[in-house]
Write a protein that binds this DNA or RNA. Structure first.
Lengths: 204, 204
DNA sequence: CCATACATACGTACCGGTCAGTAACATTGT
DNA sequence: ACAATGTTACTGACCGGTACGTATGTATGG
């Protein structure tokens, strides 16, 4: 009970029944932060759309920066759900896993209001080291890199680290060019390019 | 003389002697916008660091958004200088051209204060369609895509559009992960991965 | 030859609005 | 009672943008 901050307090102690206002706030924040960007959205608009008031926000979240970090932690969970869904669909076949994941990413990038990866976007918005939102983003990306490299090892790549990093570059490129080009953009070919890259990395 | 706006006025008519204050403003804006982000920097800080006053800014630039667009136009020029430098270094050899360009990109991403591509970052900061800064960014990226695809054709790739787009994905991925991971990040391998991808795309 | 007139370039001081964040108190449901 | 939320009003800082006055050079006219 010593170092509990406002955020952790709500997920400890009572398992269910977290404050209702905080949920609405986080839902709205997730939506607006992702679509418009964190810096572009003020707390007033968040509470207004959530149908709550500002003190309710600050009773649960110590600051806007921490609210942004909470949004990204939620985003992180959802991201790994999507990732593991592709992984679980092809047990023991890392190549099929990554291609399945990238096929879905490629499809999502072609949706009209695609806005890329919330993690990536947050890191662009907050270049300052140590910013709460950026920390969450960096951790997510480092874990992704770790897993991609491990998958490259499992594929038997001659230079697994290079292949894992190459896949990460393609993924980040898809996130960005998805929101830059929209429909018909280069992100649609991310799975095919990943497959080519894997093919080239397996032949020694 | 009908549709001249403030910005174009200074480059028409008298060939030399654009106002001195505007130059200082644009220089400072370029530096601050790139390093910290456009939304993160207020006009007050720009004019303060430039040693001028706010009216001087608004005499030359109609708005902060247009100043941001001017910054990106300047960035665009510098970008194509770097790009053509790599192209001119290897006449008639598009594969060597792109590898030379990416080798330099890879090196720059490893510098401690690397902040990615100003164009890409601006598009992330301004998702709204039609925003002056975003328009410049989108045009730059579309031209880059066009040139990469043309180079892929010149390489004799079996599926040139896919290769061109794959190279673009790698480039954007390098820009982003360069600022996300810093030193030792995956962007360092962008040239090697591009070479692998090209190799795989030439064998039919 | 000098005074007036005008354009150019810049500064001082200010505008209303919005930003994130808070203090104090009332209301509700369990 | 108690915990969660709402209400209202406020703060100081900062936001982008502007009305208006000032210095300086330069060209023109008497």
């Amino acid at each position: 009970m010593s170092s509990d901050n406002k955020i952790e307090a709500s997920i400890n102690e009572t398992p269910a029944a977290p404050p209702k206002a905080a949920d609405k706030i986080l839902d709205v924040a997730r939506d607006l932060f992702y679509r418009e960007g964190i810096r572009a959205i003020g707390v007033d608009e968040i509470v207004k759309r959530a149908g709550v008031t500002k003190p309710s926000l600050y009773r649960t979240f110590p600051s806007k920066d921490e609210l942004a970090a909470s949004y990204l932690r939620k985003y992180d969970l959802e991201f790994w759900e999507r990732f593991d869904e592709a992984v679980d669909a092809h047990p023991g076949d890392p190549r099929a896993q990554i291609i399945a994941f990238l096929t879905r990413v490629g499809k999502r990038t072609q949706k009209p209001d695609y806005r890329g990866c919330g993690m990536t976007n947050a890191a662009v918005e907050y270049p300052e080291h140590g910013h709460p939102a950026r920390v969450v983003s960096e951790n997510n990306k480092q874990e992704l890199r770790r897993r991609l490299r491990a998958m490259a090892v499992a594929m038997g790549a001659s230079d697994a680290d290079t292949l894992g990093d190459g896949l990460l570059l393609l993924i980040e490129g898809a996130y960005i060019s998805g929101q830059l080009f929209g429909l018909g953009g280069p992100a649609a070919s991310v799975a095919r390019n990943a497959d080519l890259l894997i093919e080239a990395s397996l032949k020694k």
